[in-house]
Design a protein around this nucleic acid. Structure first.
Lengths: 186, 186
DNA sequence: CACGGATTAGACCGTTCGGTCTAGTCTTCT
DNA sequence: AGAAGACTAGACCGAACGGTCTAATCCGTG
């Protein structure tokens, strides 16, 4: 992490990674700074609110990252079912890359964070953003609006739960099994 | 929490509550002890491993609590679909009672806990115990073994994800919507 | 070159963390 | 009654926490 990307970016991405692996409270500032190769002063320059501000930025960054995955999965798909399948497979691969150690990138840092309402509502906004992204693709692929929204919500719920179970088992199989569980519905 | 229940029990239940509300790392020993009305010496007498040991005990206690809810929901049900519906409704009520502030009692303390493998495998065992409980009821209610196991796993996955989303929204509606999402499958 | 804001650098601070340890009390059995 | 564990009680500890602050450095602009 000692590359030449801007300091702020390095902070955000390392923080996102660590929060995802160990949770917000279990990750110390010292660890983030050491991993990112950034002194404390820089952190409080870029994020006057300190750890909490960094966590919010990390959440946004993660949301963008996931949105990109969703787009990559659904854009080339001929219908919703295949797009959803692609998405689950991509997540399973991501899960393996992270050595099965990380929290679901979706819930990630958000619930482990301060109990403040700011965090909770931020989490809610991020979730909704992802649901909307999926729903948009679903509608584009021919589903009526109401059904698109319902399917998108179901997908997010399932991914969230499946990732958790996958983590407990250290096995991405349950992520790959999602399409088979969800498809018979539509 | 200053009642006359045995010290050990008071520790376990208060710890379970706090871990569920704020997570493992965000909950200090001091807070647990104050809430339970128990001095530090007693904790280390009953749990020589300290916070970690207490967390494992709290996880077991929570698992028992949930197993009871599962039994209460499925025993009087005439078929799997109704049992599952009862279960979701009970969880939604539980969610509301907790002021929508708690993590899913299932994942609860387990993933926020130490990254040790002991915690992870304990979490896995608890999950499996719950899945098996549901699968047992499903089979008793007429589902073939393979399908019973699949349905039970799907239910756990969905509950896990729905609880998370419900928490972000501060709204148990998504928990109540689960049966409608899952039933068309069977 | 000189100036000034942006950024880096890290020493330092008070607090709180989980955990240890020694005394004391309460129960139970002989 | 008296000895022996089980249990309570909380003072105390070093380490790590998040956060503040001052000084140094970098860099674009006059």
């Amino acid at each position: 992490m000692q590359d030449d990307t801007p300091t702020r970016d390095r902070l955000v991405t390392t923080a996102a990674t660590l929060f995802r692996r160990k949770g917000y409270h279990a990750t110390g500032l010292a660890e983030i700074l050491a991993d990112a190769g950034v002194p404390k002063g820089s952190l409080y320059h870029h994020f006057p609110d300190g750890k909490a501000g960094l966590a919010l930025a990390a959440a946004d960054w993660t949301a963008g990252f996931l949105t990109r995955i969703i787009d990559d999965a659904f854009l080339p798909a001929p219908n919703y079912g295949e797009g959803m399948t692609h998405y689950c497979m991509k997540l399973a691969k991501l899960f393996q890359l992270s050595e099965a150690a990380n929290t679901c990138p979706i819930s990630a840092l958000l619930f482990d964070g301060p109990e403040s309402d700011a965090f909770r509502s931020h989490a809610n906004a991020v979730f909704q953003r992802l649901i909307d992204a999926v729903a948009g693709h679903a509608q584009r692929l021919g589903l009526p609006e109401a059904q698109a929204k319902a399917e998108a919500e179901t997908l997010l719920i399932s991914v969230e739960g499946a990732w958790t179970l996958a983590r407990a088992r250290r096995d991405p199989a349950v992520l790959r099994s999602l399409p088979a569980r969800l498809l018979p519905t539509g």
